[in-house]
Amino acid sequence: MMDSAAVFSVLSRCFVEGEQAEWDELTAPTAWADFLGGARQMLQDTHDLAERAPRGSRRISGCHLRDVLSESELKALAVPPTFAAHDEFARTHFTGGLPYSAVPVESLYCKDDDRRDPLEPNRGLYLGKTADYMRDLTTSLGLSIPDEFRACPDHLSLELDLIAVLLRSGMAAQAQTLVVERLGWLTDYRMKLIGLNEEAANFYISLVDMLVCERAKFTEASDEEDERPRAVAKR
């Protein structure tokens, strides 16, 4: 079964255009089942990403996707789109400047938790603070942002990719920090995808839901214990 790092790696590939061969390989029935199994396991785990065994002092509740996802989302998740369908989705929605753009970039969704009128969201600009952070963070880890992500170092795919890299590099605690700190905007992004009102979006919504659940495990826990990684303290 896939480990968490691989799960994040696969998720990371789902929010960008890719090559046909790669997509086919990723979504071949066995491979996809393997991914789903890994994802399910990760979500149900009741321990930190850093721990392989449950620790009594941490009260992290596992999460069952079937409790969270709708029937249609579950279906969408079980049957990943064909390359053609994914490619079309990416080219119409993961591309900027279109009425149906839903570019998965954190800077565009940055918002304060308790901010004013939810119907009048403060729309973000590219290369916001979170982009600067991601750029600085990758640099300080000795990595660099690929050129195609120049405008968006805080692209969801890069955030997920970095989590996977950290997990694989023995930095699970740091990976978990990123999960908590970097994936909070996905609740807003989820609304954006739902707003597309397209059946094809269900697949991506279900992936986002998965990530929202994974993050929720740690944020709920960290409310009770101070030393836990947590969302940035509001100033």
């Binding site: 079964m1 896939m2 480990d3 790092a5 691989a6 790696s9 696969v10 990371s12 790669e22 390989e25 990723l26 029935p29 066995t30 491979a31 089942a33 393997d34 991914f35 890994g38 990758t138 990595l143 660099s144 942002i145 690929p146 992500f149 795919s157 890069l158 990719d161 970095l162 996977a164 890299v165 694989r168």
Partner: peptide
């Protein structure tokens, strides 16, 4: 359903945009 070709062992799932 076919665990034999576990993806986690494959290069694809290790390939990283960053690393």
């Amino acid at each position: 359903i076919e665990r034999k070709t576990a993806m986690s062992e494959k290069a694809l799932t290790r390939r990283s945009f960053l690393a």
